[in-house]
Amino acid sequence: MTSAHSIASSPRYAPLEPRACSAALMIADDAGMAAIDALIGQNPELGRKATILRIGATAPPDTLPAALDGALSQARMGLQVWLAGSQGLIARAQALLLAAGLPKGAIQSEHRGTAARRMQCVHCKTLAEGVTTDPYTCPGCGRALFVRDHFSARLGAFQGVCIDAETPGDIPEPQELRL
């Protein structure tokens, strides 16, 4: 079954580590909070200067862009960012941070929680959040898409490609994605 880390474009999720910084921003979902807690446990000083954005039931994922805008409006170089949680949250947050000009080297991430992926359909370009099976059905064009490990940090998504293009209708049974 497909798993991340297998090819050079796949995102790398190292355990979060404290790093020297002038300001700290931490973004996590419910599952990711444990990684943030562990990070702050290693370095309580970091916790005291950190702004923590918790994305979850009370702050759904579509509030992320606005929350990030707020957090970045006064930011200066010297800001370090820690991301923890689902692949989709990490990918979206990282894509927004890169688009704001933050260098990739200032961002760390740690995957916690489900194996769900954020996918882009290469045919109709629709983004699908929280994809848990391979193949999955594209919510945009309805095609059955094979889940590739090829990942675009700019889009914050893995690539989905029609699985039955050569043999229309010949679609294998969907398998659960695993970590």
Binding site: A20, C21, S22, A23, M77, G78, L79, P103, K104, G105
Partner: peptide
């Protein structure tokens, strides 16, 4: 710069 949190890629 590193001590102040600048990443190496900048």
């Amino acid at each position: 710069a590193t001590a102040l949190g600048w990443p190496p890629d900048a």
